[in-house]
Structures are given as structure tokens and as C-alpha cells.
Nucleic acid binder design. Structure first.
Lengths: 132, 132
DNA sequence: TTACATGCAAATTGTTTGCAACTCA
DNA sequence: TGAGTTGCAAACAATTTGCATGTAA
């Protein structure tokens, strides 16, 4: 893969923004200092970088994909209220792929776990505004 | 919720087709015997039925959502080759929600696990055609 | 010099919505 | 009767693609 300045920028933006940005967010972040960059280029590079494992694509229920520059295996929690994604360590699932492969015959390449719920901040906000 | 013939048909189609159909597949299945049915109605009813818990919506990476008439909690394995979705029982994860809630303060409403890989049939096919 | 990458706009895909007609209760 | 439902078409959002131009090696 040939070097490109735009790809470098996309990689940096994902690494430096631990908010698990969408493609569109990456685009807007970069657009500030690079007004000429195009959304198509951001998409192309996000796809390339996740194919080569330099970043991780997080598919979420009913929403645009998010991207994560933190490539050590971990899981995600999605707040149904504010839409933020939080990291989750869970050693429980170490070895899960091998176990599933052995018991099912499926050649497992990976797995992803998404936990849905309400983050502490939104629980607080909900309790404040609606006293039910 | 008022009864409707179309909703009944959608529910039956999802229950009777264990292929974890997409909205579009449900539409085409029903269209054979009900040529007047519309895709919008299928979508509306799939959403209603999954909101009421009569069927389960399975969001998949980069693909349209799938639907499952099998409502007992279980997980899914996605074949990256043929796109088929297989059921997976995994008692390991019983109690996971409570555990995460206790350790993170997140008010957990549920979780979903998607295992990716190659199903036995596609492993076979791959081994046949490309001897690497 | 040339194969790969970009920017732009148009095309696709998956899904939702507005609205008039229709149907279940 | 009347609120909920339908079919159709148009609207949407997220993402991808075609193509002429630009750029790293």
C-alpha cells in the first residue's frame, strides 16, 4: 500500500480520538485543518486501515459503524441514551474462539460483544428529570 | 396493537424460516402468495414485532439486520463466506449482564455476541478449490 | 512514468415516512 | 365509526463507485 498523507491523517484522528468516532466524525475532525479532504477518502481509508488491522471497526445495532484505534482485544458498551461507546475489559471471554471452534466445527476468526444499557451519567440524568 | 393479516404473515414467515431472514427475504417469501404486500409493511411489522419481543432483531456487521423467531436467548455465528447465520448456545455468558453492571455501574439492558468465521461447509469448499 | 490515491458527484443500499385508501373492532 | 394499518412513492441516511486529476515511488 502506497503512502498517502490523507491515510496518515485518518489513522491519527482515530488514534487520538478515544470517542470511537463514526466515519462522519473523523471527516469533520480532519476537515478543520484539511478543508480539501473528502468523505469518500475518509471511508476508503477507514476501510483499508481496518482491513490491515491498524484500527478496529465496531458495527453497532442500527447505527453507523464506529472506529477504534485501540487494537488490543476488548469489548464495548453502548449507551442507549447518549450513544457513547465505552470500552470493557472481560477476561472471561479469553479462549472463547477456540472453545467454540472445538465444539461447533466453525473456523472462528473472531467475535464481538456489544453490551447495551445506560451509562452512569445518563442514569443520573434520567433520575433527575423523571421522578418515577 | 390491532390485529392485521399482514403482521400475522410476517410473524409466521420469520418463525417458519430458520434462515434468520433479512427484511427483504421476508418480503420475497411473502410476496409469492401475497403479491400485494409491500416492503414498507414488512419493515413496519418486523420493527413492531421485535419491539414487543415476539421476534428478535440481529444486527450484523456491514449487512442488513436479520430476524429470528427463536426468542430464547442465544448467540449467533456468521459465516463470512456464505453469509449464513447459525445459532449458538453458550451458557458461559449466563449472568454476564449482572456481572458487568456490578463492576462498571452501567445499567445493562442486554448484550449480543456475534462470532465470525467460516462454517463447515465453506471450509470444505475453500479447501477443495484453493489448495494452499 | 505509472500505479495507486484523491476529490467530486452520482449511484447504491437499506430503511423510514407522508398520505390517501382501507380494515379491524 | 374511527384509530390503526396498508400500499405506494418519495425521502433519507450511510456508504460506495466512476472518473478525471493528482501524487508517491
Amino acid at each position: 500500500m502506497k503512502y498517502s498523507r490523507q491515510r496518515e491523517l485518518v489513522l491519527q484522528a482515530v488514534r487520538e480520538n478515544s470517542i470511537h468516532p463514526t466515519a462522519d466524525q473523523v471527516y469533520h475532525i480532519l476537515k478543520k485543518d484539511n478543508p480539501q479532504i473528502s468523505l469518500a477518502t475518509v471511508y476508503r481509508n477507514l476501510n483499508l486501515l481496518s482491513q490491515t488491522g491498524q484500527i478496529v471497526k465496531i458495527p453497532l445495532p442500527n447505527q453507523g459503524d464506529r472506529f477504534d484505534g485501540h487494537t488490543v482485544p476488548h469489548y464495548h458498551m453502548l449507551c442507549q441514551q447518549c450513544g457513547q461507546v465505552f470500552d470493557l475489559q472481560l477476561s472471561l471471554l479469553d479462549g472463547l474462539d477456540e472453545q467454540i471452534q472445538a465444539s461447533t466445527g466453525f473456523a472462528v476468526t473472531g467475535h464481538q460483544l456489544i453490551v447495551t444499557g445506560y451509562c452512569p451519567h445518563c442514569q443520573q440524568a434520567g433520575a433527575d428529570s423523571t421522578a418515577h
